[in-house]
């Protein structure tokens, strides 16, 4: 299927339902509240990514203020389009989400934006190190910042990959490093969250780094049209995140994160969004495979979209998609 024939829809027709509470978003999935049936997969586009880039919203933990954004004329015009598409409140939520650790669907962020965000994570780790007088020993041994620099260098080569004869090998190399980066960040997080008085900024940075590496890795696999592997890797990312989440439910985070309930709640919320986003990816990728869409064509379509910040890949497109709940057993009564 070519990029132009991907059966995307502008999600406007679902907005009323969303406003009425008939449909809800979970990660990148939009579903009916009453039936649980999936309406479609919400997907951010290059237009949204452009808004964020112009606005210099590169704070990977999603805490960037939107005040300055609205004052920027170029961004303002884009935001108006965003508002007309998804409504004011939703647009701000979407911008926050897209600029946060989570994102929506396959990342539409360009290599430059991903690099910029990774740079912020790197600087943030630097600041935290200064602030708390050095990272925990195990983290220092992992040398996460060196890992990030390696990833950035590798990503730097990605920009012109499409024009190079060895484009595939460049992207493959980047994908491998991103995979390694995801696992390193996850290991770092696992070490930090079991310590008492863990620094929330450090946890945020690691979570942001993990999310960026994970989403960029999946994007690289899409570029290579390795969709089956993308589905497998996104499932593996989810399983790792699930394991981490089971280690640190919010009440445990509250006892471990310095500052107590408030920063712990924010981290739990970020972790939940990342988990939801990653959880959406295997299903989305499976859908794309079932529609016989080429991975690179999918990315091109997202990057080329200039009008709508979000697109919806309807569940009805192509083969009928089953409800996520129909194959589940009834909750066994005790």
């Amino acid at each position: 299927m070519s990029a132009t024939s991907i059966p995307f829809e502008i999600p406007a027709k679902f907005l009323l339902d969303h406003a009425l509470g008939n449909v809800e978003r979970y990660g990148a999935i939009l579903k009916h509240v009453d039936t649980g049936r999936i309406v479609g997969h919400v997907q951010e586009t290059g237009m949204l990514s452009h808004v964020l880039n112009v606005a210099q919203i590169v704070e990977p933990t999603g805490v960037a203020s939107l005040i300055g954004v609205a004052q920027n004329a170029q961004v303002s015009r884009k935001l108006t389009a965003l508002q007309s598409a998804v409504g004011t409140l939703q647009s701000l939520q979407m911008v926050n989400l897209a600029s946060s650790v989570a994102g929506i669907g396959v990342t539409a962020a360009s290599t430059a934006i991903i690099m910029k965000r990774l740079g912020v994570v790197n600087e943030s780790l630097d600041r935290v190190e200064d602030m708390i007088g050095g990272l925990p020993v195990k983290l220092r041994e992992m040398d996460l910042r060196k890992t990030l620099v390696n990833i950035q260098t590798s990503l730097d080569r990605l920009d012109g990959a499409g024009l190079r004869r060895d484009g595939d090998s460049v992207v493959k190399s980047a994908e491998e490093k991103l995979h390694y980066g995801f696992n390193s960040m996850l290991d770092g997080l696992s070490i930090v969250v079991i310590e008492k008085n863990a620094d929330p900024a450090l946890v945020n940075s690691l979570l942001a780094g993990l999310s960026l590496c994970g989403s960029a890795q999946i994007k690289a696999l899409y570029w290579l049209n390795e969709l089956e592997e993308a589905e497998r890797q996104s499932r593996s990312q989810f399983e790792k995140l699930e394991k981490l989440s089971l280690m640190v439910p919010q009440d445990i985070l509250e006892t471990r994160i310095s500052g107590g309930a408030e920063p712990a709640a924010r981290i739990a919320s970020d972790l939940s969004e990342v988990r939801a986003r990653v959880a959406s990816m295997p299903g989305l990728t499976k859908k794309i495979r079932s529609l016989d869409i080429h991975g690179r064509a999918y990315l091109e379509r997202l990057e080329d979209e200039q009008e709508s910040p979000l697109l919806l890949l309807p569940a009805e497109a192509g083969l009928q998609e089953d409800s996520p709940r129909t194959d589940r057993k009834w909750w066994a009564l005790r």
Binding site: G27, F238, S272, R275, A276, A279, P324
Partner: peptide, 13 residues
């Protein structure tokens, strides 16, 4: 259908 979203939701809950 992938069950990851349902798994994520139960962990959220």
């Amino acid at each position: 259908m992938s069950n990851e979203p349902a798994r994520a939701q139960v962990v959220d809950w």
